[in-house]
């Protein structure tokens, strides 16, 4: 009984902390995006609100809260307000299985930093949740009763379903090598050996496919067709304003963070670094080691976030037929071949 209470409190505390952390990450993303885009375009970017403009995202949120929340007369009111909740809820739900660092051992109790990082179907859960995200966007497009929103929603559903396949298949190779669906096992497998066991080196093709599919899944440039401004006004969120728009905004950045975190955990070795942690002389399970692990992990995630933004401001948007060609004619066959080759390799070497 006492144990159950303890577990409930622990899960609630972790959940609260993670939700807050994601909001902060979204704010950080907004700031990074504005700064990086400005630097790439030879500008300075926000520098008025707070030191170096660091408080700009909070000013943006305050502005969004003060805006009028418009709902079109012809819209389906219920689904119109449900859609952003789905988009954000699903984006947050993915974080249930994501670990941030190694475990902490307090006396005889092991505390994982993450709600359920040892879940034995972790990767399947993440894939399932990211594919649910399409409902939010499609519902938003449909319920707005606006042709541009509907087109944006349709594009997004077609795009996400197409790239889901390649995304799943690109992970099959890594699952074959590691032999587990648990994300903790993935990180443990990639420890040591001077970083050679990072799955980016064992599965380079799988990594590239996953990277491209992740861009498409998060509706980021160069795959941001659902919100292609020149063609579709604002895409699926044309009819949204105020904090409902803010929720879509937040969901996009939360998804971006999720993708970065997944890439780091599955391909870039999580919190492992090329030299062994034994050199630091820290004990397994101690708070200091967990902190160092978290810092390493955080730096890698920041690099991936920067990469996402960097790509957005470098590469022009795909045309719709090019998008479908790339998904079905290039990535899917490549992912299938990768699975077969990896399976043969695993069978041969193990």
């Amino acid at each position: 009984m006492n144990d159950l209470l303890w577990i409930t409190i622990e899960a609630l505390a972790k959940g609260l902390a993670i939700v807050m952390a994601i909001q902060l990450m979204a704010a950080l993303n907004v700031y990074l995006e504005r700064k990086v885009s400005a630097f790439i375009q030879g500008r300075i970017g926000p520098n008025r609100v707070g030191p170096w403009g660091t408080l700009q995202p909070f000013a943006d949120v305050a502005k969004l809260f003060l805006k009028e929340d418009l709902v079109p007369n012809a819209a389906d009111k219920f689904f119109h307000s449900l859609a952003p909740v789905i988009a954000l809820g699903v984006a947050l739900a993915t974080w249930a299985v994501i670990p941030f660092s190694s475990y902490i051992q307090l006396e005889d109790r092991i505390i994982y930093l993450g709600i359920a990082p040892d879940l034995n179907i972790g990767i399947l859960y993440v894939l399932a949740m990211t594919s649910l995200g399409v409902y939010g966007i499609t519902l938003a497009g449909w319920s707005s009763n606006n042709k541009y929103s509907l087109l944006g929603g349709l594009r997004s559903s077609a795009q996400m379903i197409s790239y889901e396949l390649s995304m799943g298949l690109s992970l099959v190779g890594t699952v074959l090598i590691v032999g587990s669906f648990s994300i903790n096992d993935f990180v443990d497998y990639q420890q040591g050996w001077g970083g050679i066991r990072w799955l980016i080196f064992l599965q380079p093709i799988g990594f590239i496919i996953f990277l491209i599919a992740a861009f498409a899944e998060t509706n980021r440039a160069p795959f941001d067709l659902p919100e292609a401004e020149p063609e579709l006004v604002g895409g699926f969120n044309t009819e949204y304003s105020g904090m409902k728009f803010g929720m879509f905004f937040l969901a996009e950045y939360a998804n971006m963070t999720t993708s970065s975190v997944l890439i780091v955990l599955l391909f870039l070795g999580g919190w492992s670094i090329p030299f062994a942690y034994e050199a630091l002389g820290l004990q397994e399970g101690s708070i200091m080691l967990a902190l160092v692990h978290f810092l390493v992990f955080f730096v890698k995630v920041l690099f991936m976030l920067f990469f996402f933004i960097w790509v957005r401001w470098s590469i022009p948007r795909f045309r719709y037929d090019q998008l479908m060609n790339l998904g079905w004619k290039v990535l899917l066959p490549l992912a299938l071949v990768n699975v077969v080759v990896t399976a043969a390799g695993v069978l041969f070497f193990k």
């Binding site: 990086v36 790439i40 030879g42 500008r43 300075i44 590239i208 401001w313 470098s314």
Partner: peptide
């Protein structure tokens, strides 16, 4: 992919140039 890498290199180089603002 090499062409995309070239493009990314260009934008990265652009980040360190003096700003016009």
């Amino acid at each position: 992919i090499p062409e995309i890498a070239k493009g990314l290199g260009l934008t990265l180089a652009e980040m360190f140039k003096p700003k016009f603002t």
